[in-house]
């Protein structure tokens, strides 16, 4: 088991003054504008904020899927900026799990093969106990032989979650994992993520727009215009909602997004 698991006070990942700029000149967009956050190990963290506030950019940078313009990202003690492509690939394979909004399973592989894919790529055998635990936790036992196009969106997302957890990564990132799902399917996914934190000591960072989803987490970080504007511990849907309207009136008032009204 990874050393980062189950130690509430250690830092699983952090960013220091993280900046990401897209475009140049007039078209320049500061997707992230000096973000410094710490993700505590064994915690379920939500990242919230209006559309375009930089949530996806943040988790992409932290998950070694994107490179920041400046600032640094640490995964445990490792600073990503110092790593070469090969090491980044291994990092993604062994220490990071990612759940996409659009499931992103490999269509030619069965559910089981998809779940085992990161291990197979690394040439490792799954720990049978852990495998059973995860498969039962996501409730996929009777779907293992199916291919993605034979499964519902909710089922596919559960496969994606199982895939993210199978290699026991230091940290799992999920970018709007419930964005495409109805409330029942969402609840299953969220419960699974929360249980993986509570029962297995997994560290999870989840981007969401949904205050109900955020209420499953231990901590909410609010972003607006590429900056961290607020934070909330032990959130409930009500406190999240209240903070969201607060965040809207954050440092750059008037820049709020219509998307918030849908919440």
């Amino acid at each position: 088991m990874s050393t980062h698991h189950g130690r509430p006070d250690s830092i699983a990942a952090r960013t220091v003054d993280l900046t990401k700029v897209y475009g140049i000149g007039d078209a320049e967009v500061h997707a992230l504008d000096g973000v410094t956050v710490e993700i505590h190990a064994g915690e379920f963290t939500a990242v919230m904020g209006p559309s375009g506030s930089g949530k996806s950019t943040l988790v992409h940078c932290m998950a070694a899927l994107d490179t920041p313009t400046s600032g640094s990202v640490f995964l445990g003690e490792t600073e990503l900026a110092h790593l070469k492509d090969k090491e980044l690939t291994e990092l993604r394979r062994d220490r990071i799990g990612f759940v996409f909004q659009a499931y992103n399973l490999v269509p030619t592989l069965t559910a089981e093969e998809n779940v085992l894919l990161p291990l197979a790529i690394a040439g490792r055998k799954p720990d049978p106990d852990w495998y059973d635990t995860v498969i039962d936790a996501v409730g996929l036992r009777d779907r293992l032989g199916h291919r993605p196009n034979e499964m519902s969106g909710g089922q596919q997302q559960r496969v994606a979650c199982a895939r993210a957890l199978m290699s026991r990564p230091t940290i799992v990132f999920a970018d709007e994992p419930t964005g495409n799902l109805d409330s029942t399917a969402s609840a299953e996914i969220l419960a699974f993520l929360r249980d993986s934190v509570r029962d297995f000591g997994q560290t999870v960072v989840m981007v969401t727009h949904d205050p109900v989803a955020a209420s499953y987490t231990d901590r909410v970080i609010f972003l607006a215009d590429g900056k961290v504007v607020d934070e909330l511990r032990s959130p409930t849907s009500e406190t999240v909602l209240a903070h969201m309207s607060g965040a809207r009136r954050g440092p750059e008032t008037g820049q709020g997004h219509a998307a918030l009204h849908t919440a």
Binding site: A63, L65, D85, K86, T89, E90, R92, R93, D94, F98, F100, N104, L105, V106, P107, L117, P118, I121, A122, R163
Partner: peptide, 15 residues
Amino acid sequence: REIGVLRAVGLSRRQ
């Protein structure tokens, strides 16, 4: 997209 996913879950360039 699929290639992106494979890379994201840790397939190296060489692989």
